[in-house]
Design a protein around this nucleic acid. Structure first.
Lengths: 178, 178
DNA sequence: TTATAATGTAATTAC
DNA sequence: GTAATTACATTATT
């Protein structure tokens, strides 16, 4: 026993309009021409004025109600498509920003190296201090910035400076130091 | 004369809610209890095995068909909700990354200033070149890093160095230079 | 399963 | 106030 459901429920006894030469079947799908016209109309204007509704209904041989329903459903579809598009756009923005971010992080590391090395060059006394500290903190010697130099001038051609012109494109190394 | 609305199909005479002892009406809505149980079942397991379908249908007094349809529609709803959630999550990630990015950009600017100033301190000859160039490129003098010093030591206390410990937390300025 | 049609209702708008 | 209309969720079909 299930008293809770009636199988027939869906039988559209509706008049189905004028062009109904078929024996009034379920008529669930709209014809391609009908959809095309509705689609075209929707594209022109997603809002359905009563006047346009009447006109469309007459033109397509559909009850106004059905035209209204179609527009509502079309609008709903439109909305979820929009959400998907929004997601894709945002994803692209995110990926782009992420790439930029990583590039800037990398530039940042280079700059830190430069600052470190320049400071080292500038302060021989500090350099001593730092070597002492490094002996305790970094005894495996995995940071090559520590071991390259103690003098001022020879570092000018060091690899730490190969990208200096990224930051100061107009900078020119004085020829006497090259 | 109001051709703008079709009365038919809107009538729906009183579904009267749940206690449907009237045999006639088209029982389209499920009762709250039915929905609750379906919802609970769906939460436990979004896949509907034939066995569970039968059981649920019997328990709720619904045709299996209707139970199956409910699960399918529920799944579809679930999917579009997921898209919305995904969007929100991604948006949060994006905003977070953007903030980080801006912070790194800012750090970057500071580092560039440091590199510039340190280089200036290090290379009096280059300093001359640079001042000449600046005279052409930047005659309004809107970059204060240009005008502060030419000597080596006095700069050590300058504001360009106030954040040095961000990059080298373990660094200690030698006391003789402070 | 996906897309689409139809229905149920609450909220909104206009008369 | 209430009829008309829309927006949104739900149910159903293909």
């Amino acid at each position: 026993m299930d008293p809770n459901y009636d199988q027939e429920s869906r039988s559209r006894s509706a008049p189905t309009g004028e062009i109904d030469n078929q024996p009034a079947e379920k008529k669930r799908r709209l014809t391609v021409e009908q959809v095309n016209m509705l689609e075209k109309s929707f594209e022109e204007e997603n809002k359905l004025e009563p006047e346009r509704k009447t006109e469309l209904a007459k033109m397509l041989g559909l009850p106004q109600r059905q035209v209204a329903v179609w527009f509502q459903n079309r609008k709903a579809r439109c909305k979820i498509k929009k959400i998907e598009r929004d997601y894709d756009v945002l994803k692209a923005c995110y990926d782009s920003l992420l790439a930029k971010h990583e590039s800037v992080i990398s530039e940042n590391e280079k700059l830190k190296s430069k600052v470190f090395t320049l400071t080292e060059m500038l302060l021989p006394a500090a350099h001593q201090t730092q070597r002492n500290l490094q002996g305790k903190l970094n005894s495996k010697g995995d940071d090559e910035t520590m071991s390259s130099s103690t003098a001022l001038v020879p570092l000018a051609n060091d690899h730490y400076f190969t990208n200096v012109d990224e930051s100061f494109g107009w900078w020119v190394w004085p020829s006497n130091l090259m």
